[in-house]
Design a protein around this nucleic acid. Structure first.
Lengths: 245, 245
DNA sequence: AGACTCATGTAATTCGTTACATGATTCC
DNA sequence: GGAATCATGTAACGAATTACATGAGTCT
């Protein structure tokens, strides 16, 4: 669970309330992690009963009381341990690619509209990140936190690089689709039994698979760790199934 | 819900069972969408009662019966409508960036190890995608489906571009961190009250925000749609909050 | 007058993963 | 003999979003 560790990370900067945590999330890690208050409050409660954080109520008369959370030794330990572990990846989910994948069902015009929209959103994201870059500079300067600045800017740099690549792809895709033969589109009006005979397709799938051993066994199959090279196999050396993880 | 529409997309190619759908998922869209059988089966049931697909049982004696789903007119309509709508984006969640963000708590060595691991996984992903590219070529050729090939390869092209960018970033980040001052690391042993005074930080946050109007109002604030330019505002022209979506 | 900020939450629902269950057949 | 393939599912759990609830104070 990354959320709890992200919260721990912020609380490790100094004691905070849930409300403040939400603010920091929105102004710093929003481009790669989001959290709603309705998720933060229960998470803090759970972390408290796990002994990772401690809570103190600050009474206020004009406003609702504040519940200030600070990190415990156990929490700091847990955080450091988690940070040093290799990061696990979330399953990527890109609705835009589903649309492109089944693009043959759309008209050329429609598919291009979808991609243009995607490109626009990506451009908006890039503007945001450029702004965020300057923002962090000013924030870091005002508080005298040059050390943290390096890491914060690295995460923004990642976003910039990746989204630039995405934008380039979308623009290229639009060009390629514009150049494509009209016969590629709106093919839903093929025969009623579908574009593909599934039995045949499944057989071909299996045949191509056996021609390209290891192919599509999942990206993990292509990992050849530097350390233990005992049980790992390269895709060109077929044997049994490649087990990883 | 993209899953149902992805399923519809495949069933639109031709009638299939849940089991076959899982196979097609794993060998074609796995790099941007995953689905478990335990999710596919209930989804198909729901789609059937929604009238998007029809089911016919194919009795088999040696193996369990097959439930073959085919798309209905209503389902095809729903699919086309969904495909033509602008794609919504999933909230990105990148645990690796959380680790980099809080990198000052780690030692230089530890942080670099985490990033190297990330780079390795990205390289594995790239190998997988290059393999997948060839796989699709052979598959498309064997079945005579040049039209679909264009779209399928575009999705792989996206993965290649984006992951290459990610890898480049990781390699650059490692260099930058290696070059960084030692004082940037393991700063958890600062004063007990934390690295930052949260009250001050919050004030600075607000001040920088007011200096950079529109900043960090979220990426949507940077969208200037070509069509209706009435209610949209650019970040340089501060007014009230920018509402979007 | 209306919206936004501060400050806390709960409840319902959706989406997805992991684990469990069954059982014949076929491949190594 | 053990694993994988074919073929169906259910149940429990976890993560995240959306909606609902409260209420004083401040800003425009």
């Amino acid at each position: 669970m990354s959320l709890k560790h992200a919260l721990l990370g912020f609380i490790n900067y100094g004691p905070m309330t849930g409300y403040e945590l939400k603010k920091f999330f929105d102004t710093s890690v929003a481009h790669f992690w989001n959290a709603e208050l309705s998720q933060i409050y229960p998470a803090l409660k759970a972390m408290e009963s796990d002994g990772l954080v401690e809570m103190k109520v600050e009474v206020q008369d004009d406003r609702p009381n504040r519940k200030v959370y600070s990190i415990t030794d156990s929490g700091r330990c847990e955080l450091l341990e988690w940070l040093a572990k290799p990061a696990d990846r979330e399953q990527p989910r890109e609705p835009i690619l589903i649309k492109v994948f089944f693009g043959s069902s759309l008209s050329k015009r429609e598919l291009i509209a979808v991609l243009r929209d995607c490109a626009d959103e990506t451009r908006a994201m890039l503007s945001y990140l450029e702004y965020a870059h300057q923002f962090v500079d000013k924030f870091v300067e005002s508080l005298g936190l040059r050390q943290e600045g390096l890491f914060w800017q690295l995460t923004i740099g990642c976003g910039l690089k990746v989204h630039k690549a995405e934008l380039e792809w979308a623009e290229e895709a639009i060009e390629r689709i514009e150049a494509a033969d009209d016969a590629c589109f709106e093919n839903e009006q093929h025969g009623y039994d579908g574009v593909i005979d599934i039995r045949t397709a499944t057989e071909v799938l299996d045949r191509v698979k056996s021609l390209m051993p290891g192919a599509l066994a999942g990206p993990d199959a292509y990992l050849h760790p530097a350390g233990d090279s005992t049980k790992e196999q390269l895709p060109n050396q077929p044997k049994t199934k490649v087990a990883a993880k």
